[in-house]
Design a protein around this nucleic acid. Structure first.
Lengths: 260, 260
DNA sequence: ATAACGCATCTTGTATACAAGACTGCCATC
DNA sequence: GATGGCAGTCTTGTATACAAGATGCGTTAT
């Protein structure tokens, strides 16, 4: 594997796991040192991530982790709904028994998760392990459908969108106060979608997916609003946090002076 | 402007105008010499064009101008139909009188084109100038609608798709044996779409755009089939053509050995 | 004649040096 | 005290040198 690819994976991982929160400034030199390569491959990785919409490179100023405002999140989810709706319709047309079987297994896996969460009690918050399995199952379900649509361009574009949703993704630390209900709803919607796909019902498949994703959008936006309202309550001023706020400020200043 | 951006524009232009036909091998060194820069900016430009789907870079072998097979063209147009359909629906929701006015001007411009072509007589082939104006008008019409949708991610993705369609774009040298009819049809469809948009009729706008693009797909595929059938009839073996065939061969050999 | 080997030359991948813009903080000046 | 300039140090942008894989062709051995 090339160093560029390695650097790309490194940075993307840190982005996905929240090690580099929005607004963080990334220095090519520093990253190169951390990764153990020269600036060249790091630069290529950064360029690619910028093209994918995860970073924002401002000439001669620096590259920053993009932050999405509320409108942008809404736009992203609207587009995702359209794309995955199309994917579902195409999948319904082309689907094979093997894929149906695979999707059914995913649904079964999610049912198991529901059972485990139910056993924890109605108010218990789910642990990191369960949350991770949940996210992985959900992602895999959607990805399977996208691939079943058998449209290479669609696959590429949609994967990009999913990555962004996941990265900015606020889903990761979504503090759901009723995970059992959310999980059951997700499971139910997946099952219904599976039914439509197996029956080759293009219209139903499209509409179910669109509704599914728009539901996700609503809950994410609700979380955004909640987070906005409770902003600034973290008065803990440890060093890295302070530095992050500083870089975020710089980013805001530069982009404001530039784009407006 | 940075040299990278300049190199990007240079290469893209040559790609769009058909100077680099599908299968051509691009050498970083050679391009750098031509552009008058070092390999670094050229490399960045190539990387970006690869991400956009116009080039195909094969590690340690070279980078080639992508060629699309029939299926891929079909997939591209299907996706474009979905994306631009969504754009039209959103545009119908958000559209302002100013945008309607702009679109009306475009329609008027196309009507002028129709008149000019009609004056040429029913069987005359249209010249390069007219063709260029036609393509520009069409592109601008669609782009205006996409922007009116007010979804930044959609704009980005769709522009990429349009660029590809245009580049591979076979539209450029589509030998239409009845340009007047095609032009009139295009004009009529644009007018009808404009009506739906002005009336804020989301459903009609979406369906009209989808039909419009799928019609384009059909005529392009028909041309592909025609070109396939008449392949190999160009027995003229001038030096550049020969070199191109050679590079195309190499490309085919490598990708075949690699992907299959 | 044919197959295999090796070298010259192509390709990209990576490291590094240097240039130049942009920010920061200090110091001198008003 | 406020303000303007200036150097040091950050950032990215570009050129270039070198490494290493891939290719093609000529030579040689069978």
């Amino acid at each position: 594997m090339s160093l560029s690819a390695f650097a790309y994976k490194c940075i993307k991982d840190k982005l996905r796991t929240g090690r580099f929160p929005g607004g963080t400034m990334l220095s090519e030199t520093t990253l190169a040192r951390e990764i153990g390569a020269s600036r060249t491959p790091v630069r290529e990785a950064i360029a690619q991530l910028e093209r994918e919409g995860l970073l924002d490179q401002i000439p001669r100023h620096g590259t920053f982790v993009r932050v999405m405002d509320r409108d942008e999140i809404e736009e992203l989810y609207d587009l995702r709904a359209t794309l995955e709706g199309f994917a579902a319709a195409q999948a319904a047309r082309h689907i094979t028994p093997a894929v149906v079987y695979k999707l059914r297994n995913h649904c079964r896996g999610m049912m198991d998760l529901v059972r485990e969460v139910r056993r924890l009690g109605p108010k218990a918050s789910i642990g990191a392990g369960l949350a991770q399995r949940w996210v992985a199952n959900d992602a895999s379900f959607h990805t399977t459908i996208i691939h079943a649509a058998a449209n290479r361009w669609l696959t590429k574009v949609t994967e990009d969108m999913r990555l962004m949703a996941q990265t900015f993704g606020l889903c990761r630390n979504l503090p759901d106060n009723n995970p059992l209900a959310t999980l059951r709803r997700t499971w139910r919607e997946h099952c219904r979608l599976l039914g439509a796909l197996a029956a080759h019902d293009e219209r139903a498949a499209r509409e179910l997916v669109i509704a599914h994703i728009l539901t996700g959008k609503e809950s994410l936006l609700a979380y955004c609003d909640w987070a906005d309202k409770h902003r600034g309550e973290h008065a803990g001023l440890d060093e890295p946090r302070r530095r992050h706020l500083q870089s975020l400020d710089r980013y805001a200043r530069i982009t404001r002076g530039r784009k407006r």
